[in-house]
Deep mutational scan, measured.
Amino acid sequence: MTFKLIINGKTLKGETTTEAVDAATAEKVFKQYANDNGLDGEWTYDDATKTFTITE
């Protein structure tokens, strides 16, 4: 399955995708991506669209 991450950061904005077997796996990938890029914010997830959002 394809999951999307929408980034609404103070300095970084955009989106990225990952292929994962489930939402929990995708969340780990996206949280590592956010950590690697210095993002810290509030996370939301929409199961209907398989989309995570981080807002700083």
Score class of each variant (00 low, 15 high):
residue 42 E to G: 06
residue 14 G to N: 07
residue 35 N to Y: 15
residue 56 E to I: 14
residue 23 A to L: 06
residue 42 E to V: 14
residue 47 D to T: 08
residue 37 N to L: 15
residue 17 T to Q: 12
residue 30 F to N: 00
residue 32 Q to A: 13
residue 44 T to G: 09
residue 31 K to R: 14
residue 40 D to M: 13
residue 34 A to C: 08
residue 17 T to L: 12
residue 48 A to M: 13
residue 16 T to R: 15
residue 10 K to L: 12
residue 24 A to C: 09
residue 6 I to D: 03
residue 47 D to F: 09
residue 1 M to A: 10
residue 48 A to D: 13
residue 7 I to T: 04
residue 5 L to E: 00
residue 48 A to K: 10
residue 42 E to P: 04
residue 11 T to N: 12
residue 26 A to I: 01
residue 56 E to P: 10
residue 30 F to I: 01
residue 51 T to K: 03
residue 24 A to F: 15
residue 6 I to H: 05
residue 14 G to T: 11
residue 46 D to Q: 05
residue 49 T to H: 08
residue 19 E to K: 10
residue 25 T to Y: 08
residue 16 T to K: 12
residue 9 G to L: 15
residue 41 G to H: 02
residue 21 V to N: 10
residue 9 G to T: 15
residue 22 D to W: 03
residue 35 N to H: 14
residue 35 N to F: 15
residue 44 T to Q: 11
residue 26 A to N: 00
residue 39 L to G: 02
residue 11 T to L: 12
residue 46 D to I: 05
residue 52 F to P: 00
residue 47 D to Q: 09
residue 16 T to Q: 13
residue 56 E to W: 12
residue 23 A to H: 09
residue 31 K to E: 04
residue 29 V to S: 06
residue 47 D to Y: 07
residue 50 K to D: 03
residue 26 A to H: 00
residue 20 A to Y: 02
residue 5 L to N: 01
residue 14 G to V: 15
residue 29 V to C: 06
residue 1 M to H: 14
residue 16 T to L: 14
residue 14 G to F: 14
residue 5 L to T: 01
residue 26 A to M: 01
residue 50 K to A: 07
residue 23 A to M: 11
residue 9 G to K: 08
residue 54 I to E: 00
residue 27 E to Y: 15
residue 41 G to L: 02
residue 46 D to T: 05
residue 10 K to D: 07
residue 31 K to G: 04
residue 10 K to E: 07
residue 15 E to H: 11
residue 10 K to P: 08
residue 15 E to F: 11
residue 9 G to P: 03
residue 34 A to Y: 03
residue 2 T to G: 05
residue 41 G to P: 02
residue 38 G to M: 09
residue 10 K to A: 10
residue 43 W to I: 05
residue 50 K to N: 10
residue 4 K to S: 06
residue 22 D to S: 06
residue 30 F to E: 00
residue 17 T to F: 15
residue 18 T to V: 14
residue 10 K to N: 10
residue 54 I to F: 07
residue 54 I to Q: 02
residue 3 F to A: 01
residue 1 M to W: 15
residue 33 Y to E: 02
residue 51 T to S: 05
residue 27 E to C: 10
residue 27 E to S: 07
residue 43 W to P: 01
residue 28 K to G: 09
residue 8 N to L: 14
residue 11 T to Y: 12
residue 39 L to Y: 10
residue 47 D to P: 14
residue 18 T to M: 11
residue 39 L to I: 14
residue 52 F to W: 07
residue 52 F to V: 01
residue 7 I to F: 15
residue 15 E to L: 11
residue 24 A to W: 11
residue 36 D to T: 09
residue 33 Y to I: 07
residue 14 G to E: 08
residue 31 K to V: 07
residue 50 K to R: 15
residue 43 W to T: 02
residue 34 A to Q: 03
residue 55 T to V: 06
residue 55 T to H: 08
residue 21 V to I: 14
residue 51 T to V: 07
residue 53 T to Y: 09
residue 40 D to W: 13
residue 7 I to V: 09
residue 51 T to R: 03
residue 54 I to M: 05
residue 54 I to W: 04
residue 11 T to E: 08
residue 29 V to Y: 15
residue 14 G to I: 15
residue 19 E to Q: 13
residue 27 E to K: 09
residue 28 K to Y: 11
residue 37 N to D: 03
residue 35 N to C: 09
residue 16 T to F: 13
residue 42 E to A: 09
residue 31 K to W: 07
residue 43 W to C: 03
residue 9 G to C: 10
residue 20 A to S: 08
residue 5 L to F: 09
residue 19 E to G: 05
residue 7 I to P: 01
residue 22 D to F: 04
residue 11 T to V: 09
residue 39 L to K: 02
residue 46 D to F: 04
residue 1 M to G: 12
residue 1 M to N: 11
residue 51 T to Q: 04
residue 23 A to D: 04
residue 27 E to D: 05
residue 16 T to Y: 15
residue 10 K to M: 13
residue 16 T to A: 13
residue 1 M to F: 13
residue 5 L to I: 03
residue 9 G to R: 05
residue 20 A to Q: 12
residue 18 T to A: 07
residue 30 F to M: 02
residue 2 T to A: 07
residue 41 G to I: 02
residue 38 G to V: 04
residue 36 D to Y: 09
residue 41 G to T: 02
residue 45 Y to C: 01
residue 51 T to N: 03
residue 7 I to N: 02
residue 26 A to S: 02
residue 53 T to Q: 05
residue 3 F to W: 07
residue 21 V to L: 12
residue 19 E to T: 12
residue 35 N to T: 14
residue 12 L to Q: 12
residue 28 K to L: 09
residue 43 W to N: 00
residue 15 E to A: 10
residue 53 T to M: 10
residue 28 K to T: 09
residue 54 I to V: 12
residue 19 E to W: 14
residue 1 M to D: 10
residue 6 I to Q: 06
residue 54 I to Y: 03
residue 21 V to M: 13
residue 46 D to P: 00
residue 25 T to S: 13
residue 3 F to H: 03
residue 21 V to T: 12
residue 3 F to I: 02
residue 38 G to Y: 08
residue 44 T to L: 07
residue 12 L to P: 04
residue 48 A to I: 15
residue 7 I to G: 02
residue 9 G to Q: 07
residue 28 K to E: 10
residue 33 Y to P: 00
residue 3 F to K: 00
residue 19 E to S: 10
residue 21 V to C: 07
residue 20 A to V: 05
residue 36 D to A: 15
residue 11 T to K: 14
residue 37 N to G: 04
residue 41 G to C: 03
residue 40 D to A: 14
residue 49 T to C: 04
residue 10 K to G: 09
residue 20 A to I: 02
residue 3 F to S: 00
residue 36 D to V: 13
residue 40 D to Y: 14
residue 43 W to A: 01
residue 3 F to P: 00
residue 19 E to L: 13
residue 14 G to C: 11
residue 53 T to G: 03
residue 40 D to C: 12
residue 4 K to V: 10
residue 44 T to K: 09
residue 36 D to F: 08
residue 10 K to H: 11
residue 20 A to C: 07
residue 2 T to Q: 12
residue 17 T to E: 09
residue 33 Y to W: 15
residue 12 L to C: 10
residue 29 V to M: 08
residue 46 D to R: 03
residue 21 V to Q: 13
residue 41 G to W: 08
residue 12 L to F: 14
residue 4 K to W: 13
residue 51 T to C: 05
residue 44 T to E: 08
residue 55 T to S: 08
residue 46 D to S: 06
residue 32 Q to S: 08
residue 44 T to A: 10
residue 39 L to H: 05
residue 15 E to T: 12
residue 48 A to R: 12
residue 32 Q to R: 10
residue 25 T to L: 08
residue 51 T to E: 04
residue 15 E to W: 12
residue 22 D to L: 04
residue 55 T to D: 06
residue 31 K to H: 08
residue 22 D to G: 04
residue 9 G to M: 15
residue 31 K to M: 10
residue 31 K to L: 08
residue 35 N to L: 13
residue 30 F to P: 00
residue 9 G to D: 04
residue 26 A to Q: 01
residue 37 N to H: 15
residue 50 K to S: 06
residue 53 T to W: 08
residue 44 T to N: 06
residue 24 A to N: 08
residue 2 T to R: 12
residue 40 D to F: 13
residue 47 D to I: 09
residue 36 D to R: 09
residue 12 L to K: 08
residue 39 L to T: 03
residue 47 D to L: 07
residue 43 W to D: 00
residue 50 K to G: 05
residue 39 L to A: 04
residue 32 Q to Y: 04
residue 39 L to E: 02
residue 38 G to I: 04
residue 30 F to C: 01
residue 20 A to G: 04
residue 54 I to H: 02
residue 53 T to K: 05
residue 27 E to Q: 11
residue 15 E to G: 07
residue 25 T to V: 07
residue 15 E to R: 05
residue 17 T to K: 09
residue 12 L to A: 10
residue 23 A to Y: 12
residue 19 E to V: 15
residue 24 A to G: 09
residue 46 D to K: 04
residue 5 L to S: 00
residue 39 L to S: 02
residue 15 E to Y: 14
residue 22 D to K: 03
residue 56 E to R: 04
residue 43 W to R: 01
residue 8 N to A: 09
residue 13 K to R: 13
residue 53 T to E: 05
residue 20 A to T: 05
residue 45 Y to S: 01
residue 6 I to F: 06
residue 26 A to V: 02
residue 25 T to I: 08
residue 30 F to D: 00
residue 45 Y to F: 05
residue 31 K to D: 02
residue 22 D to V: 03
residue 36 D to I: 09
residue 28 K to H: 09
residue 34 A to T: 07
residue 43 W to M: 09
residue 43 W to Y: 03
residue 12 L to M: 14
residue 36 D to P: 01
residue 20 A to P: 01
residue 47 D to K: 09
residue 48 A to W: 08
residue 49 T to N: 12
residue 38 G to W: 06
residue 36 D to L: 12
residue 23 A to Q: 10
residue 36 D to M: 10
residue 27 E to L: 15
residue 34 A to S: 05
residue 7 I to S: 03
residue 40 D to R: 15
residue 23 A to W: 10
residue 54 I to R: 01
residue 21 V to K: 09
residue 36 D to Q: 12
residue 1 M to S: 11
residue 29 V to D: 05
residue 32 Q to T: 12
residue 17 T to G: 04
residue 14 G to S: 14
residue 6 I to A: 04
residue 31 K to C: 05
residue 14 G to K: 12
residue 40 D to P: 04
